[in-house]
């Protein structure tokens, strides 16, 4: 089996006829097939309830598919267990739509958590945290309790945590939902920087300002099905 720290593969995410049903009869995704290349920035668009978040959850193994195959870095992520799964997850950074922040901890602690599990040294963690906070204009919030921040600030902390451990795959769910135009640009700059350093980025969004003028691939979902794919695989 291929590990993510092995030589990079051309394909980082592969979905073949993936479906996800919720009881009693909700079809969140139906026969979705998709390939994302290493180092690519990929936009997943569609209205609320189209299945964007479900797709991201399936890729990071937060949910299991009802049918189909999902491979991340050449490994069937839903067959991985224990240390192998943990190691793979360390290389996947996820900015969740519901943030999943520890609201009683400081901003710095929230960002550091993804690096602590990889046993990064405290000075390295501290430097990286400060660096990310500066890039997202949150330097003054270093020791603030996360629960006391605004939604927009919390969203940026989530993003900082997702990219902190320099993952090779970054999944971002609605990264700019609570942000103004200037902050949105900073967030996109950070994601572009991650892409430049070799990370693959999948962004689920319904904010068309993010992808309107992009030359990256875009896939539109509608009621769990692929409606169109721009610039790559055709549905």
């Amino acid at each position: 089996m291929t590990e993510m720290n092995a030589p990079p593969q051309p394909t980082i995410v592969e979905l073949i006829k993936v479906s996800k049903n919720y009881p009693p009869d909700v079809i969140a995704l139906a026969d979705v097939s998709l390939t994302v290349e290493t180092g690519e920035m990929f936009f997943l668009i569609g209205k609320s309830g189209a299945g964007k978040t479900t797709l991201l959850k399936l890729i990071c193994n937060m949910e299991t598919p009802s049918n189909g195959l999902i491979e991340v870095a050449g490994q069937n992520i839903h067959r991985l267990k224990g240390k192998k799964l943990a190691r793979l997850r360390q290389k996947i950074g996820v900015a969740y739509q519901d943030f999943k922040l520890l609201t009683d901890r400081t901003v710095a602690e929230n960002i550091a958590i993804s690096m602590e599990v990889s046993y990064k040294k405290p000075p390295v963690i501290s430097k990286r945290v400060k660096d990310l906070l500066a890039q997202l204009e949150l330097s003054d919030k270093h020791d603030a309790i996360t629960g006391e921040l605004s939604r927009g600030e919390q969203q940026r902390v989530t993003l900082a945590r997702a990219v902190a451990n320099s993952p090779t795959l970054i999944l971002v769910d609605e990264p700019t939902g609570n942000l103004d135009a200037a902050t949105t640009e900073k967030v996109m700059n950070l994601l572009n920087k991650c892409k430049s350093s070799g990370a693959t980025i999948i962004i689920a969004t319904h904010d068309d300002s993010l992808y309107r003028h992009t030359d990256h691939r875009i896939m539109e979902l509608c009621r769990g099905k692929i409606r169109r794919v721009n610039g790559g695989l055709q549905a």
């Binding site: 937060m62 224990g82 240390k83 999943k100 958590i113 451990n165």
Partner: peptide, 13 residues
Amino acid sequence: AELELLRLVGATN
């Protein structure tokens, strides 16, 4: 919530 997050960010058992 914290333990769930630890699992998601790749903490081993």
